Simulated assay, not measured.
Amino acid sequence: MKQLVIARIAAAASLVSLAAGLVPMAAHGQTTVNANWVQVSNTGPAARGGAGMVYDSARQRSILFGGSDGSGSYFSDTWQYDGASWTQLQVAGPSARFLALMAYNSERGVTVLYGGYNNGVINNTWEWNGSSWTQRLTAHTPPARLWSAMTYDSTRHVIVLFGGELDTLLNDTWQYDGNDWTQVITAHAPAARRGHAIAYDPARGVTVLFGGQSSVNLNDTWEFNGVDWTQVAPASSPSERIWPAMAYDPNLGGTVMFGGAFGSNYNPLNDTWLYAEGGWQQIAPQVNLSARFYSASAYESNRGDFVLFGGSVIAGGGSNFGDTWSLQGVTTSALDWAQATTSTAPTARVWSQMDYDSARGVSVLFGGSSDSGPGNLHDTWEWDGARWTQMA
């Protein structure tokens, strides 16, 4: 009997370690990204740089507007892409421009367009509802600017805009809620810059910012939680750059960034990167796109791929591309065990019952046997992924 009790206690110690926090977690450094670029359309909008593009999840179409042909002419056309082909929409809308910012508000089901350039800086706001453009005359608007960046924060249901340049470099943060623009005063902020990229990470609830240009090209990473900016110090980072394409790709588990321009001569780049869980890693696709910047990009959730259109190799929008590419792949993470240290936990036991409550997001443990006797425990505990709580 004594040997049985000893065996029970040994087993109980092992079990309670498991129940108290040995949970499978992704092993950092063992994540493998398998993704390749695939050219998906040879026809569509004319070659251009500096177009705006978003994915309209309600209508399952990517929307592209404007851009520059590189010779001083600007477009005012609206196109949609269904994953197989492009269709031009014969609608009136914003005036011709390039470098306009676009973001899709999934709560309201509209694409928001702000600013741009056409022989002068433009700072009006437009919305596309899937069939027509409407100019929004807001009480407030950000000061006119170029080379800014904008994304949609799906947690707080606002468009977020940061930085840019007009007569001077800017580092202000603005939000648009569908009714008005509001400046967000933050305790910290990235240095004033232009040509940076931002994308919203819904898994972590933060807007991610990378790079751009101040007096020099930058390769710093920042995160905005809706209240303040925090600089991230990843173990490695992409090289400094201006004008990359960037969007969050849940299929790959992070923010994808492609290309941009490097150095004082604005040499185009063609590297592909993934930012996830506070770190960058380079993706090595079998097929590489031609180096470029000023590309338009969006993540298409119904097809699970990152789509990129066009771009330029000359600052100002010259030597343009008119091709459409899709980054397709998956991220796989090896699983490992990691012990969670908790201040409170069930006592050592065996033969308890445990199951997961998916509606409430907790694991529930009941009863079991301790060294004092078989079936002598009748307590109930809940595990929320970080801590144990005993239920009365």
Rank of each mutant, 00 (worst) to 15 (best):
M1V: 07
I9H: 11
A11K: 13
V16R: 11
S17R: 15
N34K: 12
N36L: 04
V40M: 10
S41V: 02
A51Q: 12
A51C: 10
R61T: 06
I63E: 05
S68W: 09
R97Q: 13
A100C: 10
A100G: 14
A100R: 05
A103I: 06
S106A: 12
E107C: 02
G115Y: 11
G120R: 06
G120I: 08
I122L: 15
W128T: 00
G130T: 11
G130N: 10
S132D: 01
L137N: 15
T138N: 11
T141K: 12
P142G: 10
P143T: 14
A144M: 07
R145W: 00
R145K: 15
Y152F: 13
T168P: 01
Q175Y: 00
G178I: 12
V184L: 15
I185A: 09
T186S: 10
A203H: 05
R204V: 04
R204D: 02
G205R: 06
G212N: 11
Q213C: 10
L218F: 03
L218R: 14
L218S: 09
N219F: 02
N219W: 01
V227I: 08
P234L: 06
W243H: 10
A245T: 09
Y248N: 14
L252D: 07
M257S: 10
S264P: 03
N265F: 01
P268M: 08
Q281W: 00
Q281T: 14
I283C: 05
V287R: 12
L289D: 03
F293R: 03
S297L: 03
V307G: 09
T324Y: 09
W325Y: 12
Q328A: 03
V330E: 11
T331W: 00
S333K: 11
A334R: 14
T342N: 12
S352G: 14
M354N: 02
Y356L: 08
D357R: 06
D357M: 05
G361Q: 11
H378N: 15
D379Y: 00
T380V: 14
T380P: 04
W381L: 11
T389A: 14
